[in-house]
């Protein structure tokens, strides 16, 4: 990691309150309270074939408009270590800014702990990318997500469809970079390892998470990733560690993904 990227990451992480009780790599039917703004950051490293690397840091700002309505903006930063002509030698660039409006349509609190929530969301990816890390078009998307927590078990399921109106990335990296529309279908399971039962004390909780993150394009390309992770969640912060292992990839003109790593820190106010 270059000093520039590391410095940027450290600065942002150190200043970042965020949101918890979410899977590491997919949406959740959670939202900030009305009038509350929540920044969040995630840093990732992807290893591709032939020792090619990609570093990504995504900044998110989420704001509660009303009790069940929130808006969010995601801005990714990339640093590429690919073979030319893709971004190489640590070339730095912005990705596409994503704006999202999320509405919680179901909140069923069953008892002290258990709850079922569902949200729908819609938004667009804007062509803010630089140095080959972004598309050339405004791409609208819509989707839905369900989150259920029963005792020590949590389950998330989400579906999102993105209409790609332009040509995608000149040199695609992921399946979602192609000029074809694509769908993201994700499933996630979280198990609270500690504590077995909550008490009256303010303690952190350790979760083991397992996600299936998939992308399917109408052109026939796809990625299926298995994503195990660990989440430490306390009242005022959360730490997350994750892996992404490709189970199946079918992509054209894109490097083969070998492994993804995720390290995140969230500070919660």
């Amino acid at each position: 990691m270059s000093p520039r990227f590391a410095g940027c990451a450290l600065l942002v992480v150190a200043a970042t309150p965020a949101f918890a009780q979410e899977m590491l790599n997919m949406p959740a039917a959670t939202a900030p309270s009305p009038g509350v703004a929540i920044p969040r950051v995630q840093a990732r490293a992807y290893l591709f074939e032939d020792s090619q690397w990609l570093l990504e840091q995504t900044l998110r700002l989420e704001y509660g408009i009303a009790r069940d309505l929130s808006v969010s903006a995601d801005l990714p930063f990339f640093q590429g270590f690919f073979d030319p002509p893709r971004p190489s030698d640590g070339e730095f660039g912005l990705g596409d800014l994503e704006l999202n409006l999320e509405l919680r349509v179901l909140r069923e609190d069953l008892n002290a702990i258990d709850t079922v929530r569902a949200s729908v969301f819609a938004g667009a990816e804007l062509p803010t990318g630089t140095n080959g890390f972004g598309g050339d078009s405004v791409d609208p998307f819509a989707g839905a997500v369900v989150t259920a927590i029963v005792g020590r078990h949590g389950l998330d399921a989400s579906a999102r469809y993105t209409f790609v109106t332009g040509d995608g990335l000149f040199l695609p990296i992921f399946a979602s970079d192609t000029p074809d529309d694509f769908a993201n279908l994700d499933l996630g399971y979280a198990f609270r390892m500690f504590p077995e039962e909550y008490g009256e004390e303010r303690v952190g909780a350790w979760y083991a998470t397992l996600e299936l993150n998939t992308t399917w394009t109408v052109g026939g390309e796809h990625e299926v990733l298995l994503s195990p992770g660990l989440l430490l969640e306390a009242p005022s912060y959360a730490l997350e560690f994750g892996l992404q292992v490709p189970l199946s990839e079918e992509r054209v003109n894109a490097p083969e993904l070998r492994l993804g790593l995720l390290l995140g820190l969230r500070l919660i106010f």
Partner: peptide, 25 residues
């Protein structure tokens, strides 16, 4: 199939968003 799923998702979202916005207000 993918397109049909996408269009259904968008249609549901477009119906739910304004309805829900009104109810939250």
């Amino acid at each position: 199939t993918l397109r049909a799923c996408g269009l259904a998702t968008v249609a549901l979202t477009l119906v739910a968003l304004p309805t829900g916005c009104a109810s939250t207000q």
